[in-house]
Design a protein around this nucleic acid. Structure first.
Length: 835
RNA sequence: GCGAGAGUGGCGUAAUUGGUAGCCGCGCAGGAUUUAGGAUCCUGUGCCGCAAGGCGUGGGGGUUCGAGUCCCCCCUCUCGCACCA
């Protein structure tokens, strides 16, 4: 066999050497400012990637996967004529960094800059189109000055407040843990059982925005999975608050033993109601007892003397439980308080219990138990021998109490044993009963959210100090904006301790300050704020990075925000993305932003596993990008990451498979170097080229990077299959298509093709439908729905011609016995003959 | 338990959205070149079968001329949330 593909040895081009090419172009980009964004340029396009936490291990392949996908999008938008802004920074504050610093015994002020330097090196090797002039780190006082400013804006608007809250406390590490750091009731670091503590904490009133955060989702161009996660997290439920009067119980107002003031020993008393939240007001006739959370404030007063001992013991046990253990499904427990309340629908007295399956944080901390129609109440009633009457049936005759399980049908069910509402459907009865009770002041419709206010206090060291000063005379006083930043002191011993207060409380010289209002001695807040506050506004900062006078410049912000495209991991579907939306809304309401949603478009990328298993240090299967970049080149590595699976789903990283992508780049390299300018391009090749342009142009904005790469590989195979040198016109557009994926190689090949400016300023290849059109098509021929062969016919051929061609094909014709009963013809695609 | 998503060759994946299942890549087999290895190039590669043909997209049923795709039931896996009244 003769091999005419390769030109004679003398003409062989230099082999593709990625490390040389990549070094050359990274230097040249730097020199020429190729990646610098002119913020006043035309058609601004802001593409954002979730900034990394600079870990000591260095860049994770997952980071690179995320960033490469963003970078391709940004480079593509630039080639389409936008001025693209693609910034990157470091989310370097927080418990991760601090814990690591503790572990290795290096102070974070030393460790973090070292990690950032390593990240910066790795990121630059990856060839991202990032304008590093706008790089930022959340640990920089010039940044967190404005994080503190942001806190003050919320404080000013009454959206930041302090209250006692339950927190997770690890007795071994002597620190507060976030809920995410508690795994099955144990500390994620040391495995110690976590305890519950009550500490004074700063909260943001995100619940005030629950409705808007939910409603706006409908209008956002975001991944559906992310929107669903936010909807579930916000957890809207529409129901009613119902009042149950406590029997024979009065709350005494005023004092029976009034001292002075001419009190006459008069006693005023008012009846006490227990308010419950329910979404099933229709079942009130079946409410046979009430259950209060153990912490419910009324429990203390309600409990009868006979029940006191048992109730107190139960409450004490509940208080000892940590938050997580309490939430796992377990057998129902509870105690009767000895008190009774009146069911407002039946007028009958019902028992009041306490049980830890009722949560104080949700609704009113009290429920009406309807054991016939709620699984949890059923289980509880079962355990304590309480009745489970039926008030909703499959039909009007279905009146016997449920025996095996609660009957929870809430749409088609019909009311029974609930005169005068018998016969109504559940939805009808909900309205009717709430209206009926409301007339007597015993009900009001209520919308409940499961979203809680955002606790931003951290009793830790490595974060921005919360800018508040406590003064005995003035109370809590915000630090004046002109005095920001409140700089984090260089504390030698930053280890958290058992005291439940931040290590900053050890630095007396730091926390003792005069009150900003009255000048008397006062003390600083020693808690720092949550890392999620740092990241809730970083996208506002980038275009104004370096500005000392404002958090974000109004003019620049008007031009560059909201963000056009945001791509990131779905692990931030709720926290970071929800907090960012909240902060943006607050700043909008404060008149500081014109928009209330920060990210016009968000897409969640997938995750990468390795050879079928999750990557983890313990498995020892973590990909170190440096090794791969070294061996295959950044371009091949980037392209492989984009090729290994659908970007929004992720995929399986297999070392062997990179070679295929590298071969593709080698073949591309050879084709460009062999290209000739004489003569005409081949029509069939040009047809395939334009089909490829169409495919890649459609696929990139849809993030279908893997199929775009497959299409380009197919085209290269076509180029190489012809026993001729390719024409320059056949390869130049391919270099442009490849450029977002393999930017260094593309620049080099673009130069080889005679261009002196960057391929990223050379536009995007135009698709020509006429050139892409096929003149003949392959039509599948089926007989009775089974494929029996294909025929080649002119494009847009009509049915009779195709049928005739099919009959002429012996392998098909032998199945066409007798006259066709029916013929289905799909133009250019398929002919199905039913005989 | 609830919510979201996914099950396709030996493997990673693709399928014009109801129209030839398996594009592209890895791997594998044979061949060319090479002192050898590597690299490169060519050919083949879903399964059974010498072939004709049959079978085939987690399992079972259905709709349709036609189903990976639509409908019903079941199984498995991944990721969230988890006593939210």
């Amino acid at each position: 066999m003769t091999d005419t593909h390769n030109p004679p040895t003398a003409e062989l081009p230099a082999a593709y050497d990625p490390s040389a090419v990549e070094r050359k172009w990274q230097a040249r980009w730097e020199e020429r400012g190729t990646n610098h964004t002119d913020l006043s340029g035309p058609r601004p396009y802001y593409t954002l990637m979730m900034f990394p936490y600079p870990s000591a291990e260095g860049l994770h392949v997952g980071n690179l996967f995320a960033f490469t996908g963003n970078d391709i999008h940004g480079r593509y938008q630039r080639m389409r004529g936008h001025t693209v802004f693609e910034p990157l920074g470091y989310d370097a504050f927080g418990i991760h960094s601090e814990n690591y610093a503790l572990k290795v015994g290096v102070h974070p002020t030393e460790l973090i800059p070292r990690n950032i330097a390593n990240f910066r090196r790795q990121l630059r090797r990856a060839g991202l189109m990032v304008d590093w002039r706008y790089e930022l780190s959340t640990t920089d006082p010039a940044y967190y000055k404005w994080t503190q400013w942001l806190f003050l804006q919320l404080y000013k608007r009454g959206l930041a407040y302090k209250k006692k809250g339950a927190v997770n406390w690890c007795p071994f590490d002597k620190t507060v843990l976030a809920n995410e750091q508690v795994i099955n009731g144990a500390c994620e670091r040391c495995g110690t059982q976590v305890e519950q503590r009550f500490l004074e904490q700063w909260f943001f009133r995100i619940t005030d925005y629950a409705g808007r955060l939910l409603d706006n989702l409908d209008r956002l161009d975001w991944s559906e999975s992310t929107k669903t996660a936010q909807r579930n997290w916000i957890g809207k439920s529409e129901g009613a608050e119902l009042s149950f009067r406590v029997q024979d119980f009065m709350e005494f107002a005023g004092s029976a033993t009034a001292t002075g003031g001419g009190a006459s020993g008069e006693v005023t008393a008012k009846p006490v109601d227990i308010t419950v939240f329910t979404t099933r007001a229709d079942t009130i006739f079946g409410a046979t007892f009430l259950v209060l959370a153990p912490e419910h404030p009324l429990v203390e007063e309600l409990t009868t003397s006979e029940q006191r001992g048992e109730v107190d013991a139960y409450r004490a046990a509940a208080a000892r439980q940590d938050i997580v253990t309490r939430k796992v499904n377990k057998e129902k427990t509870g105690v009767f308080t000895g008190a009774y309340a009146v069911n407002p629908a039946t007028g009958k007295p019902i028992q009041i219990w306490i049980a830890d399956y009722v949560l104080m944080e949700y609704g009113t901390g009290a429920i009406m138990a309807v054991p016939g129609h709620d699984e949890r109440d059923f289980e509880f009633a079962r355990k304590f021998g309480l009745p489970t009457p039926r008030v909703v049936g499959r039909d009007a005759h279905d009146t016997a109490p449920p025996t095996d399980a609660a009957f929870t049908e809430n749409v088609s069910g019909v009311l029974v044993n609930s005169a005068p509402f018998n016969g109504l459907t559940v939805p009808e009865a909900k309205h009717a009963i709430v209206a009926w009770l409301a007339e007597r002041g015993a009900a009001r419709p209520v919308v409940q959210y499961r979203l809680h206010d955002w606790c931003i206090s951290r009793q830790r060291y490595w974060g921005p100090p919360i800018p508040i000063v406590y003064c005995d005379a003035c109370g809590p006083v915000p630090v004046p904006e002109s005095e920001l930043p409140v700089v984090l002191p260089p504390l030698e011993d930053f280890k958290p301790d058992d005291s439940g207060v931040s290590p900053l409380a050890r630095d007396e010289a730091w926390y003792r300050v005069p009150c900003p209002r009255c000048g008397k001695p006062a003390r600083r807040e020693t808690d720092v704020s949550d890392t999620f506050l740092d990241s809730s506004w970083y996208f506002l900062r980038y275009p104004s990075a370096g500005r000392d006078d404002v958090a974000f410049d109004p003019e620049i912000t008007r031009r560059w925000l909201p963000v056009n495209s945001y791509i990131g991991g779905n692990e931030h579907a709720v926290l970071h993305l929800l907090y960012s939306r909240f902060v943006t809304m607050v700043l909008h309401d404060a008149g500081l932003l014109a928009f209330e949603e920060p990210f016009t478009r968000f897409r969640a990328h997938g995750t990468i596993i390795r050879e079928g298993a999750k990557m983890s240090k313990s498995r020892g299967n973590v990909v170190n990008p440096d090794e791969y970049v070294e061996r295959w080149g950044a371009d091949a590595f980037r392209t492989y990451l984009m090729f290994l699976g659908p970007y929004e789903e992720g995929g399986d990283f297999r070392d062997q498979s990179i070679s295929g992508v590298r071969r593709f780049l080698d073949r591309l390299w050879a084709s460009v170097h062999e290209a000739v300018r004489d003569g005409e391009p081949d029509a069939a090749v040009m047809r395939k080229l334009h089909q490829t342009i169409r495919k890649v142009t459609d696929d990139i904005p849809a993030l279908s990077y893997n199929t775009a790469i497959a299409a380009m590989m197919e085209y290269v195979n076509v180029l190489r299959a012809h026993e001729r040198r390719p024409h320059a016109a056949e390869v130049a557009p391919l270099v442009q298509l490849v450029a977002p994926f393999a930017p260094h190689a593309a620049e080099e090949l673009w130069e080889v093709l005679g261009h002196s400016s960057s391929v990223f300023d050379g536009g995007w290849p135009a698709f020509d439908a006429a050139l892409a059109a096929e003149e003949s098509v392959t039509v599948a021929v089926q007989v009775n729905g089974r494929t029996r062969g294909t025929v080649q016919v002119p494009k847009d051929a009509e049915q009779p011609a195709v049928l005739e061609a099919a009959m002429a094909e012996p392998t098909i014709a032998k199945f066409l016995t007798g006259s066709p009963k029916k013929v289905i013809y799909v133009k250019n695609r398929l002919l199905n003959v039913v005989v």
